[in-house]
Design a protein around this nucleic acid. Structure first.
Length: 268
DNA sequence: ACACTAACCTGCAAGC
DNA sequence: TGCTTGCAGGTTAGTG
């Protein structure tokens, strides 16, 4: 599910409620996520105060005095704030309770997410590329890193070592807006077109954040509400339907195991 | 170094 | 109706 806009939507919804709060309860009902939940996490977190909540790539970083709790939402994860106890539903795996009375509940049907405690710089964060909403991200940056590379430009911009936060939905949308075929070799996209692509990646991510992200089936924000960006999607999920630009039927192909919808007329 | 894939897991829709 | 197949927002680990 969650690409950068959904993770950022979650972060913004939670930040004010958890920052400064003390963790008074930790319930782990399922420890088999992408990796096992850090053993002993209950004891590690109990009694600690959350100093801040930040985001790096698609990871949420709950900052504590002596380390960081890394949370990833995988494909189907969500975090919800509850103002009172409620029955656990299927796939509600973890719940943190705070001294304020608020609870933070992690729900993840596919269990591709992660809950990891680390007191050191974590290897999972070591090789991440630039943040697309920071100034270091630019068309020139993409152009330079892509020279001589033969993989599809869509796979290139979805590579978290290059630029983070861009997943299948927003890569598809940004390439459409930029008029670039998703299967074009990354090394055969001009500097000018990378400038457009970088601008469109930034724009589509910002627009999606404004609408609370995209909800296909699982995603809900911290208040349990879906996002609304799906109504703005131009290509993702629209294979066979008319292109919103030229009216011809949108095509579909697979790139790196991911379905890729595009307009063969508007994208070259 | 690079390119590509299989795998992790559950739910759902489509096809037979 | 029921069974099988394939696909879904991500990412790592392994292959060549």
């Amino acid at each position: 599910m969650p690409e950068l806009p959904e993770v950022e939507t979650t972060r913004r919804g939670i930040e004010a409620r958890v920052t400064g709060s003390r963790i008074t309860g930790v319930e782990i009902r399922q420890q088999n996520l992408r990796w096992p939940v850090t053993p002993g996490l209950e004891n590690i977190l109990h009694g600690q105060v959350i100093i801040g909540l930040s985001r790096r790539a698609k990871y949420l970083l709950f900052e504590l005095r002596n380390g960081v709790l890394l949370v990833h939402l995988g494909m189907s994860g969500s975090l919800r704030l509850l103002d009172e106890s409620e029955p656990f539903r299927k796939h509600d795996h973890i719940e943190l309770t705070f001294n304020s009375g608020w609870r933070l509940r992690y729900h993840d049907p596919r269990r591709f997410g992660a809950f990891l405690w680390t007191a050191q710089p974590h290897p999972l964060l070591a090789n991440l590329g630039v943040e697309p909403l920071q100034p270091e991200f630019s068309g020139d940056y993409l152009y330079q890193l892509s020279r001589r590379r033969k993989l599809a430009v869509k796979a290139f911009v979805m590579d978290q070592r290059i630029v983070v936060g861009v997943g299948n939905i927003y890569a598809s949308e940004a390439l459409f807006k930029s008029g670039i075929r998703p299967d074009r070799a990354a090394g055969r996209v001009s500097r000018e077109r990378y400038n457009r692509l970088a601008d469109n990646i930034r724009a589509v991510l910002l627009a999606a954040i404004e609408q609370g992200g995209t909800t296909l089936r699982d995603f809900v924000n911290s208040a349990g509400a879906p996002g609304y960006f799906q109504q703005t999607l131009e290509v993702y999920g629209r294979a066979g339907l008319p292109c919103k630009n030229c009216g011809r039927a949108l095509g579909e192909m697979r790139i790196g195991q991911r379905s890729s919808v595009y307009c063969a007329n508007c994208q070259r």
